[in-house]
């Protein structure tokens, strides 16, 4: 396996929810260290695309490979793959009955079988990094949305993943908390983390993305570097979308 090979490759991916064709022949590859931001109107299939990459959403056709290996079917191999792909959800999904620190430590200890002392140290430094170390002993419900989402990022990082998937990470946040989460994501992007980010945050896309992917109606309509995409979108669909969101 060479390092120049893309980390994530989707080829001709199709996905149906009943009669609904939510992903239509989507092909996309993400290089190591690349930050790909997926934008598009609601219902365009961007969340489904993101969730397909770690098979939280099984696909109906096509192929997805991660790090040179096709996505395995449900079982041990899939669990191992998921442990290498961090995921951050719109609704945070912190384990409600565990403290912040336990949330971050659980994966490495239970999934990887790492020693608790070493994990605790790493977890604390990750919490330090996202600015939540002082709340380590609290429960998720005691934190604000922005804080919870930063913990969720720390939880994903604790597994030392090869890539991070973000499924609309700031959509459930109060406006004043969006910045603190985007700051963490931007710093991860600078450090060379491979990221697929589904978001409506155009500022983040401009600042941190290597590539912007525009989806509409289950199709990948166009992709380009952010400066190019925002300055001169090629498709009518993208022009229409940008005109609606950028005029406000």
């Amino acid at each position: 396996m060479t390092t120049s090979e893309p980390l994530i490759v989707l080829e001709g991916v199709n996905k149906y929810f009943g009669p609904l064709h939510v992903l239509q022949d989507v092909s996309l590859s993400v290089d190591r260290g690349e930050v790909v931001v997926v934008i598009g109107p609601s219902g365009s299939g961007k969340s489904t695309l993101c969730r397909a990459i770690n098979r939280l959403e099984p696909i109906s056709g096509g192929s997805i490979t991660f790090d040179g290996q096709p996505l395995p079917a449900e079982g041990k191999a899939l669990a191992r793959l998921r442990s290498e792909v961090g995921m951050v959800f719109q609704s945070f999904n912190l384990f409600a009955h565990k403290t912040i620190l336990q949330n971050v430590m659980l994966g490495p200890i239970k999934v990887r079988g790492e020693k608790s002392a070493a994990v605790r140290e790493r977890a604390m430094s990750l919490l330090e990094r996202v600015g939540i170390a002082a709340q380590a002993e609290k429960y998720p419900a005691q934190l604000s949305g922005g804080q919870q989402q930063r913990v969720a990022i720390a939880r994903a990082l604790a597994m030392q993943p090869k890539a991070l998937l973000f499924d609309e990470p700031t959509s459930a946040l109060d406006p004043e908390m969006v910045g603190e989460v985007l700051d963490v994501m931007t710093s991860l992007a600078r450090e060379g983390m491979t990221m697929v980010v589904v978001t409506h945050e155009m500022g983040f896309a401009r600042a941190a993305a290597d590539r912007v992917v525009f989806m509409a109606d289950g199709q990948l309509v166009e992709q380009a570097a952010p400066a190019e995409f925002f300055a001169s979108p090629k498709s009518d669909r993208a022009k229409d979308f940008l005109s609606k969101i950028l005029t406000h």
Binding site: N54, L56, K76, A79, R80, L81, R82, S83, E84, V85, G86, M87, F89, S91, F92, N93, L94, F95, A96, L106, G107, K110, V111, R112, A152, R155, A156, M159
Partner: peptide
């Protein structure tokens, strides 16, 4: 909530 199980599966739990 379904998200609890999804988060668990997403970090590689069986």
């Amino acid at each position: 909530p379904v998200g609890q199980a999804e988060a668990a599966r997403a970090i590689g739990m069986s």
